[in-house]
């Protein structure tokens, strides 16, 4: 299995769908507010509305669904783990199922379903953001949103750039970690058996090479940036400057409708 295949967040697929053409600022703000909405929701109906909205988004983005499915794979274990945790530890509500010492209560099931939906929505929306927005647009969007903070002397340009470079590095480093793991296994390293403390210490054999290779890549990137004349944010101009258009206005309207719907469901 090639791990990097499953690391969708941080990857960009060019295109010209409605979502691709949105201003990066609108997308960033929308994703942030959407995550907020996800946590505001407390009923199954609310989650279904949010989920169906995401599915429409997937269809509009014209990005193969397989990408999103792959994006869910890495968190599949987290979901499974949380489901088991909630089913076994939450003892509120009615007793639904009992087998020997395993007792499952209705609240536990409810919580497990909620958390699963929540995680699915979060991962899909985060993947959708990076899949449809180029790293350059993402950086610029972030920078322009945070611009007011420049007044308090925060290096916003640099922070935004660091953030998008690290997002871009993630799939590359997952790939690298995978290679290192295989190489170390070929040398006889053991990550799968033995007592837990030994296994943990063995991980150093992955972490140190990962450091060296990541730092090397970072250096190469810095040289590439400098040789192209990167001098920091001051006086930097852009080839393409995105502007707020009817598309962004439409997104705002859609979000308002969504917000009102979720709030009214909550109030019921």
């Amino acid at each position: 299995m090639n791990l990097s295949q499953y690391m969708v967040i941080g990857r960009y697929i060019p295109g010209n769908s409605y979502i691709h053409l949105l201003d990066a600022r609108s997308k960033l703000i929308f994703v942030f507010l959407y995550i907020f909405l996800v946590f505001l929701t407390n009923s199954i109906l609310g989650y279904l509305i949010l989920l169906s909205f995401i599915i429409i988004g997937i269809l509009i983005s014209k990005i193969p669904i397989s990408y999103y499915v792959k994006g869910i794979m890495p968190i599949f274990l987290i979901i499974l783990f949380t489901i088991i945790l909630h089913l076994t530890t939450n003892k509120a509500g009615d007793l639904v199922f009992q087998w020997k010492w395993i007792e499952i209560y209705s609240q536990g099931i409810e919580q497990a379903v909620f958390i699963t939906l929540r995680l699915l929505i979060l991962v899909i929306i985060a993947s959708m953001l990076t899949l449809t927005t180029s790293p350059i647009d993402l950086t610029m969007g972030l920078e322009r949103i945070l611009n007011p903070l420049k007044r308090v002397n925060l290096p916003i340009h640099e922070l935004a750039l660091m953030m998008s470079i690290s997002l871009r590095f993630i799939p590359t480093l997952v790939d690298e970690a995978d290679k290192i793991m295989k190489a170390q296994k070929a040398r006889g390293a053991n990550f799968e058996t033995g007592p837990i403390h030994k296994r943990v210490i063995n991980m150093i054999a992955i972490i140190i090479p990962l450091f060296i290779s990541a730092f090397k890549r970072a250096d190469e990137l810095a040289i590439a940036m400098e040789s192209r004349g990167y001098r920091g944010g001051e006086g930097r101009t852009r080839l393409r400057v995105s502007v707020f258009t009817w598309r962004d206005l439409l997104l705002l309207l859609i979000f308002s409708v969504l917000l009102i719907t979720i709030l009214s469901i909550r109030g019921l």
Partner: peptide, 23 residues
């Protein structure tokens, strides 16, 4: 630039290690 990319690489190593050993 080299400090900037260095910071970014530390951030992504953190994310990669978190996600690799996710559950």
């Amino acid at each position: 630039a080299k400090n900037l990319t260095f910071v970014a690489s530390i951030a992504s190593i953190y994310v990669v290690l978190t996600v690799l050993f996710a559950p």
